[in-house]
């Protein structure tokens, strides 16, 4: 191995392992599920399923990168979708002409996401509340808003043009997958190539040091939670468009999965470490596993066991690799 390659290998060992895992998963599923996993139909259906979960995972990634966690993403996504559905089916603003409903719905979705994000951000940055507990509170609150409005019933009957969006394709690939890809690339550029990204990583690594380096911590925190809520909102709209209705409690099992994806993707739960590309690969990996589970028709209990084992195993593996890395550095 040349020196630079060696350096690359050890500098981002987590990413190397991820690529290895992805290849292993592809090879294994090609051997054990031939035809099933890599049929054109299944690949397309995976490409349709990745975005709604992927946007939530990106949202969770942002909150993990600043050393926190945002438990409210899923209830925010559902409540934003409910608000939008109310506009799209004409329950709200009934005077609006049919063709203006979709733009109005999008405006409502963005406004709601902004309000939710700013609320989270203000609560966490202005009162120094730990994001875990603060977002637990807003999770129940956002869910409560949706529940009080709908009574738990799913809100459907929305404009056809909107549901078409979730099914649309461009160049043989679902439009929503392009959207997800674009968002991931934009996020990666924002975090790795801009001044904001620098501040963001420093804030995640050490908040007190960031404050005394002249970074406006509160601004960074609010911006992060606004982005988180916007990503969650997009996930909510994708669900609304694909499922044709919005409902409180949809996708509650995603919370654990988003955390697992972030951990596998190399995001340190203590903050400040990890990159978008790792999470992107982890999302694809997760979808491969989910599809394989569905094909093997595993019971929900078995899935639970596997997710639990995977999370603990990956955390232990990361710990072990970190220790190994440290000891290599010491020897040098």
């Amino acid at each position: 191995m040349t020196n630079s390659l060696k350096k690359k290998f050890f500098n981002d060992i987590n990413f190397t392992i991820l690529i290895g895992l992805l290849i292993a998963a592809i090879v294994l599923s090609a051997i054990f599920l031939p035809g099933g996993m890599f049929s054109a139909a299944n690949i397309k259906s995976m490409a349709f399923q990745i975005p709604e979960f992927g946007f939530l995972a990106l949202a969770m990634m942002l909150s993990n990168l600043i050393g926190g966690i945002d438990l409210s993403i899923i209830s925010a996504a559902n409540t934003i979708a409910i608000f939008t559905a109310f506009v799209l089916n004409g329950t709200w603003l009934p005077a609006l002409p049919e063709e203006a409903r979709i733009p109005a719905g999008l405006v409502v979705a963005i406004l709601t996401a902004l309000i939710f994000g700013v609320f989270n951000g203000l609560l966490i940055s202005k009162t120094s509340a730990p994001s875990l507990i603060a977002s637990l509170g807003t999770m129940i609150l956002f869910q409560g808003i949706g529940m009080a409005l709908t009574g738990g019933v799913s809100i459907g009957n929305i404009a056809f043009e909107f549901t078409d969006f979730g099914k649309a394709e461009w160049a043989g690939i679902p439009l929503i997958f392009w959207l997800f890809l674009g968002a991931a690339i934009l996020l990666a550029l924002l975090l790795e190539k801009t001044a904001f990204g620098r501040k963001f990583y420093l804030y995640g690594e050490n908040k007190v040091a960031a404050r005394f380096s002249g970074i406006n911590n509160e601004k960074v925190c609010i911006a992060t939670f606004v982005m988180t809520a916007l990503l969650a909102g997009i996930a909510g709209l994708i669900v609304l468009s694909r499922v044709n209705s919005a409902k409180v409690g949809y996708g509650s099992s995603y919370l654990l999965q988003t955390i697992i994806v972030c951990v596998i993707g190399g995001i340190s739960p203590n903050g400040g470490k990890g990159r978008v590309r790792g999470v992107f690969i982890a999302i694809v990996l997760m979808q491969l596993m989910s599809s394989a589970f569905t094909m093997l028709s595993l019971s929900p209990y078995t899935k639970k066991l596997i997710w639990g084992v995977v999370l603990i195993l990956v955390l232990s593996l990361n710990h072990w690799i970190r220790n190994l890395n440290d000891s290599i550095k010491k020897e040098k």
């Binding site: 739960p269 203590n270 066991l305 639990g308 603990i312 955390l315 710990h319």
Partner: peptide, 24 residues
Amino acid sequence: NWLKLPPFIITLGTQNLFHGIMTT
């Protein structure tokens, strides 16, 4: 104690682990 990670993430994992072990 061993992993030195946020207890929320670890107990979220063990929650699924314990329940999965029991039901399986």
